[in-house]
Structures are given as structure tokens and as C-alpha cells.
Simulated scan of single mutants.
Amino acid sequence: MAITLADARLNTLDDIEMQVIDEFRKSSWLLDNLTFDDCVSPAGGGATLTYGYTRLVTERGAGFRKFNEEYPKEQAKRQRYTVDLGPLGGAFEVDRVLATLGPAATNETTFQMTQTIKSARAFFSDQVINGERVTTPNEEEGFDGLDVALAGSTTEMNAGSSLDWTGAALGDDRGAANDALDVLDEFLSLLDGTPAALLGNKKTIARVRSLARRAGYYDRTQDAFGQNVESYNGIALVDLGAKAGSEAPVIPVEARELDGGSVTGVSDLYAVRLGLDGFHGVSTVGGQLVRQWLPDFSTAGAVKTGEVEMGPVAVALKATKAAAVLRNIKVQ
């Protein structure tokens, strides 16, 4: 069975829980659209929270056969992967005197809850891109993000050189803009279907938006929360924002050694096809995707703890061609 956060919202009767789920959804296109395969059984006290799957890494071809001859032998290649689910979120403390001062929408409890949700949301986006599975003597922690999963794959494009998509480079040069559009379309063609989204930071999304306008492929619609969703030829343009507790973007803009020297202002652009046969989330059987615990001021003690938690969750890439990365775009 597959669920989304929108489905999870329908399964709760708790108004506060609904609000928490909405907070996760409305500021994250990825969390609002990502499908979770809720199939992992938390048996054995959580010791078996492992999701195993087979990733299609190389597809096979086809062709004509000559009479009285056999077809050439080819095999599609698969590789076995596992990922361990884990809970993510945060805790906060509130003094009982400060807890209810001011309007309910802005008091300290609401503020801390909202900020914790924001951090958990940002941390999940960070792990989707930059996550790296860590092995300890007793357990596995975290999961590999797309940066690791796509490194060296057939859908990693332009790994050794830079692409100058800055405003100064494209400017009014129709030829340069058309070349950039050709590269973008070639990049999208690496996938095994139309991607649901292009994932980047503010600067890379701004460059793609500029190209979309030049080609007449730019569009803007509103989601269920009345927020604008921009798209390139029907593919959502998603800024993953900043890392939790930081101003640094999830997908960095940095200096890299390329083209025989150091190139500054370089970043990457990711494309993902969402679906249970492509890129999706993983959760536990019958588990709640999002939970919250408000501070309990009905008992003695001046300072109480609140928590927000998502999961246990992870992500899985079922086919290498369900995601791609365009490396080394110079955006500033």
C-alpha cells in the first residue's frame, strides 16, 4: 500500500495533528507529493526496520533477428539495495509561564512547534540530496541521498566540466540560451519517463525559470494551500531551501576544480520521477508518518518538553533512470 501526507491527514481526527501534517506539506513540494510505501514491519523492537529492494541499473536493448539466426544475448542488470528507516524530528522546552502568553497563533508553544517542524522538514530535504548511510558497530543510520546514489551512474551528466548559465553568459544571446535549453532537454531525456520535479536551490531554479520563459515553457499554478508552483514544460521547479539550522542551501553553490582550474558559483540540478517504481519514500506498516507531543502543563514542573517526529522513514530509488543529476552549472 502507498500513502502520502495528504492520505495521512485523512486518517487522523486530531485537529492538532492535522495542523502539524499541513505544516509539513505546505512549505515542501517534495513532502506534499512524495509517496511512501508503508510496508516495513517494526518487529523485534525496531531491530528489523530495513527495507530491501532491487534497483534496475542497466536496461537491455532489442532489435531485429536475421532468419536462421538467434537474437544476440543481452541481460538487464539489477542490483540489490537495502535502506534502514529512522525517525527524524526534534524536541523543545517551554516554561509554563511563557507557554500561553499572547495569542494562540503566536505564543511560545506554537512558535517552538512551528520552528521544530520547519527544521525537520529541512533536514528531510537535506537527506534526500546529501544523505549518506553511516555504519556503526551496532546499527546502520541514515540513508544514501541522490548525490551518492547517482554518482558515476548513467544519469549523471556533465560531471567533469562546467556549464555557464549565468545571466551574463546567456544575456540576450539567443544562441547561448538555445544551447542551454538543448542541454536541459538532453538531461531530461536521460530519465525513463517525464520527471515530476526539478530540484535545485534558488539560483539554479532561477536559471531554469529564465530558460523556461525564453522557450515558452514556463507555467505557474496554485497548490492545495494556495501557493504558487512554477513549472518547466509541466515539470515542477522546486527550491529545496536551506539546511536545518543554517542559511546554507541544501544543494550548495560552491567552488570546484573543473576545466583545469577553480570555477566558482557552481551547483547541481536534480530531476526525479516519483512513484513506487521510481523514487519514493518508505515507512512502517500502519505507522503514523507524523506525530507530535505537546508540553503537558497539567503536572508539576515549570519547564515541559514538546516533540515533533516524522517516521521512521527513508527513501528508495527503484531505478537509476528514475532520477538524474546535471552537475556543475555555473549560476553566479
Rank of each mutant, 00 (worst) to 15 (best):
T109A: 12
G131P: 01
A122L: 06
G145A: 04
T136P: 07
T116E: 02
E93I: 14
V94I: 14
L98I: 13
T109R: 12
G86M: 12
T154D: 11
T154A: 11
L146I: 00
F143N: 08
Q79P: 00
Q75L: 13
N130D: 03
I129T: 06
I129C: 03
L163F: 02
Y71W: 14
G152Q: 03
P137M: 10
D126W: 02
R80S: 11
R80L: 09
N107H: 13
F92W: 11
R121F: 05
D144F: 07
R133G: 05
F92Y: 15
N138F: 03
Q75E: 06
E156A: 12
V97R: 15
M157S: 02
N107T: 13
R96F: 07
A151K: 05
T110S: 12
K73R: 14
K118I: 06
R133N: 06
P87A: 09
T100V: 11
K73P: 09
V134D: 02
T135N: 03
T155M: 06
G86V: 14
L150H: 06
R80F: 05
E74H: 12
A105G: 10
A76D: 00
F111N: 14
M113G: 07
V148S: 08
T154P: 04
G160Y: 05
G145K: 04
R80D: 00
G89W: 07
A91V: 05
E156I: 01
S161R: 01
